[in-house]
Amino acid sequence: MIDKEEFTVIHTLHKRGYSIRAIAKIVGLDRRTVSKRLKEQELQPYKKPRYKSKLDSYKEYIDSRVQQASPDKIPSTVIFEEIKRQGYDGRIRIIQTYMSSIIPKKPKEEVVRFETKPSYQAQVDWTIIRSGKRPIYAFVMVLGFSRMAFVYFTDNMRQDTWQDCHIKAFEYFGGVPQTLLYDNLKSVVIERDKYGKNQHGFNNDFLDFAKDNFIPKLCKVYRAKTKGKVERFNLFLKRNFYVPLKSALKGSDIAITTDLLNNKIFSWLEYANTRLHDTTKQRPIDMFKEEKPLLAPFYSSVKEQKHITQANSKSFNIPALELDITYHTTISDYEKILGNNYASA
């Protein structure tokens, strides 16, 4: 491509009788370029050649899906799977490049992750799926070592619902981690440092539920992303499960309810737990084979054995086991004992 000054020089030299070969040597251009520009009365802007892409016939569909999902963002992996079913046989990289041209990227926040040994920790959270008069919440539990995840949708965050979701998660995993990490949820803690440093005032109902099974731990204050594994999965859940489903049902008569979401979530969890994890570079289901045998059985202080059937999943029975449990004065006593043997959260 030449600029306006070079274009003027070429034409001026030609009018003065210089040959194309001589002009090319003077201005340092190819003779074919000089010849082509001499045929033009005005400098024509350079047009980048446009090559046919395998994605061309699917761009209209991608544009519509992106618009449907707005203001949420639909991942390129979801689009890739959808257009593959329509006959697309290209690579996902082409889709990612095209979507990056129509969706502005936000700068990534730097996250420092803390790794834990198998069965030591799970991270637990409520995440809001839909607010308003008909709210939907997702209870999410992620095992710290394997990244195996469990999700269950509810329309409330009551203490009984909170505990019931824990039981469903323990049944799904087939056992209980030694510690569960939370932030400042009222379902867990009433007041931090109530009885001194790291001597928190836990919710009594929840502490009774936890005492025979696991040690509840709280994220450190002012420490961003301490609970990063579950928070990152919350984002993955919304982008890869909820947003595609919501956009697909947009304009239809099908209402999004907790029953609908729970009917679909367990088949999606099979995908989520068998994908290659971005951080570990392994499949959660494969790492879970090492973690599952180390999980403790769930023990209920209530003698009645519970049988819970998860929506669209198998029924799991909780064994009524009598465990030999040594009781300690405070939660911090447990943490000191386990802290000697396991990595810190």
Rank of each mutant, 00 (worst) to 15 (best):
I10Q: 01
T12V: 08
R16W: 02
G17F: 02
Y18H: 10
I23N: 00
D30L: 02
R31H: 08
V34P: 02
E40P: 00
Q41C: 04
P45K: 10
Y46W: 13
K48Q: 13
L55G: 07
D56A: 15
D63E: 14
I79T: 04
I79H: 04
Q96A: 05
Q96T: 08
M99D: 06
M99N: 04
K105H: 10
P107K: 10
E110F: 12
V111F: 07
R113K: 11
R113M: 12
Y120H: 10
W126N: 01
Y137G: 02
F139A: 02
V140H: 01
T154W: 08
N156I: 02
F170A: 02
E171L: 15
G174P: 05
G175Q: 08
L180R: 08
E191I: 02
G201E: 06
D208M: 06
D212S: 09
N213T: 12
P216K: 05
V221H: 10
V230F: 04
R232H: 05
N234L: 02
L237T: 02
A248L: 11
F266V: 06
Y271P: 00
Y271V: 14
L276V: 15
T280H: 07
T280M: 07
E290G: 03
A296T: 11
S300E: 08
S300M: 08
K303R: 13
S315G: 08
P319I: 11
L323T: 12
